[in-house]
Design a protein around this nucleic acid. Sequence first.
DNA 1: CATGAATGAGACTTCATTCAT
DNA 2: TATGAATGAAGTCTCATTCAT
Lengths: 228, 228, 228, 228
Amino acid sequence: MKSKAPAVPALAPERPEAATRQRRKEARPQELLQAALELFVEKGFAATRSEEVAQRAGVSKGTLYLYYPSKEELFKAVVRQNLSNLIAEGLEMAGQFEGSSSELLGCLLQTWWERVGNTPAAGIHKIVLAEVRNFPELAQFYTDEVIMPADALFSGCVQRGIDRGEFRAMPVHEVSHVLIAPLIFMAVHRHSFGCCPVHGGVEIDPAAVLNTHLNLVLRGLEVRGAAA
Amino acid sequence: MKSKAPAVPALAPERPEAATRQRRKEARPQELLQAALELFVEKGFAATRSEEVAQRAGVSKGTLYLYYPSKEELFKAVVRQNLSNLIAEGLEMAGQFEGSSSELLGCLLQTWWERVGNTPAAGIHKIVLAEVRNFPELAQFYTDEVIMPADALFSGCVQRGIDRGEFRAMPVHEVSHVLIAPLIFMAVHRHSFGCCPVHGGVEIDPAAVLNTHLNLVLRGLEVRGAAA
Amino acid sequence: MKSKAPAVPALAPERPEAATRQRRKEARPQELLQAALELFVEKGFAATRSEEVAQRAGVSKGTLYLYYPSKEELFKAVVRQNLSNLIAEGLEMAGQFEGSSSELLGCLLQTWWERVGNTPAAGIHKIVLAEVRNFPELAQFYTDEVIMPADALFSGCVQRGIDRGEFRAMPVHEVSHVLIAPLIFMAVHRHSFGCCPVHGGVEIDPAAVLNTHLNLVLRGLEVRGAAA
Amino acid sequence: MKSKAPAVPALAPERPEAATRQRRKEARPQELLQAALELFVEKGFAATRSEEVAQRAGVSKGTLYLYYPSKEELFKAVVRQNLSNLIAEGLEMAGQFEGSSSELLGCLLQTWWERVGNTPAAGIHKIVLAEVRNFPELAQFYTDEVIMPADALFSGCVQRGIDRGEFRAMPVHEVSHVLIAPLIFMAVHRHSFGCCPVHGGVEIDPAAVLNTHLNLVLRGLEVRGAAA
DNA sequence: CATGAATGAGACTTCATTCAT
DNA sequence: TATGAATGAAGTCTCATTCAT
């Protein structure tokens, strides 16, 4: 591979190897973060070896350290990157909505599941839950970037429903919590027990749970529950 | 030893042998499990060093291994001990209940929170979620000992409500999931973010969330929602 | 067992338990050395745990240390005791002999095999060979107590044969070495490979080897080999 | 790489990459095995610390584990490496031999002593004798790779002598045993007592013993003993 | 004397990190 | 930049030895 290079003079742009290498070089951080995310989700922070991350990203151990000065920093970068993504997703789906507040919340939760809960990136929740106490700085970060925006989003929708007379008057933050908790829980579950083959376990059909959840909670929220 | 003790007035002080050493030996497993639980919840399984556990229990490294042959076995013992309690509580309460199914579920969840969710034992959920993929046998164990009994308990109560015409006909397993998920999520949260001082975080009042949760979900379940 | 003692006033000599205990107490050092010898031969010095020795001797770990201040000292005691036995055996069989020197040597080797080589005590050779370099003081000890007496014994017999015109004139120490080496080798072998079940190994029949050995070497020694 | 090398005149110095690091990497296994052999022979398997081996080979503890996954595997590798040589030597010599069977056996034993018995590799016998009961698989390995081939080699030579009318008819396996035992014994001895300075010990001159051994045993074997 | 719970030095092994090439 | 050989701190576990009972 090395000594054959001089045999092919200067066809640089046509050489797929060079093209690949270039493309690879720029994609390195992405690939490393991707590999690290997968492994951290699979095995946790401590049980993931640096070399495994490098291998899965197709580089050598040394190269990993060219991009991230330590395993801790790599971990933080993984969390940061995926948190940014989460935020982006959140804002994206917040958007403008015309219909009823029940429909809005249903749509929001449904979308969250499809775009976050059901994707590999959801595993980030698992790691963060497990490791915040070992990386205290992440707590503030995660609170600012995820918990508070998400709460604001959902609380806002609940408040909208109350303001429009669709929902009963209820404490919005608590409702917000009750609304998201089962989804996050389910998402986390998929990355722990969901990956372990057990005999006789309770099969969870996410769609069914989501439907039931909405069915129960929205009905519980709606004011016409008493009226009808 | 049990009922005959009062029959023999003052033999107790005659046994000088059981004074210190023996009493300690009997208390050791408890002390070690207590220390291990705390540390595993604080730092996770992998990040907890055996010696730390021993130190917190006030013994030396070697002593720990006198009682548990490996860190992994210690972990399992912690899970086992604390989970047995869970099951016992659940069955005890499920026993015979006279009131309405809504009251039953409310009482069940309330008790779970007081006796489990609000105690250090709840932190186990966090560790299990985080580590189960590294301990495949634990997955089966936890499924058999916790997840399935819990599901049976809650599903049974929901079914009871449906049978008695109190609840709407709904998929019981999914309802069961929706019922417990927010509690477990809250419990896990208390042992991860709940322990990190953050500025401006959404303050979660467990009692309020629990009330809101019950208020919403039970109302959503009840058949009179349509009747009234 | 403890509290029942006062119920039986003073039948000391009749109590088999006390008799046993007394007898045991005096036999302790013997039993410990016996157990230690067995284990050292089986597993070697380093791989034998103090507690195992105690267990096999039927006492507790602590008791072992009442008799021997350390594992090293126990080891030396084992070697010393068994070496003394070897010497006793050697002297015993040296005796006075009337017949031909060939018969004398044949008888000597045969007896050595029966009384030493074929007994568990022969395992001592194995340990000593393996461990002298870690216990240098044993070397002098073993040389004085075993190697030199044995050499003297066998060399003497060879010299007797030469003096009496039965044997060719040959270097007596070297002949002595050639005479004993196969026996010791065989004895050691019995305690290493001889205890491992292997498929297709070369079966060694000690009696046949001994016969062959005598047949060859004595014939090689005898002066009439050329005459006959 | 093999026969094409001379066809490419001066490419060698062009590879600066293989300068130091690479050459060391290739030499490492040899250096480690050498150090391990020495130490295992000196102190035995159990009493040799991994780090000592590394130090003697001039590397760090971790490097040792880069090449051998455990101390036990290192031990096996030592046995394997040195035993392969033994076998090779034996087969090479056994090949075609023109002279008398006495000469063949004499030459065989003489060579064995020079090439094996008198080198550090002979110390392996000591370790194997001492440790084989703790490594059951080693017993089979050693039997297959050393004991049986060696027996076949020597038995074959004896049989050759009998077939050609040079030797008396005798049980070949037993003769074989008698032939090798003193050599191995002497080799083992050199690595245990031979290394301990003792006063007044019986000085063993290997060459003299070997000569005496051959003198005695071959004379005992030869048929002309009766004929002459 | 005897026990066995407790200790802690020390062995093996892993793996994050460095650095010569 | 990229590599991967090398390092050594640190973790798990063992076991000879001690000592309160």
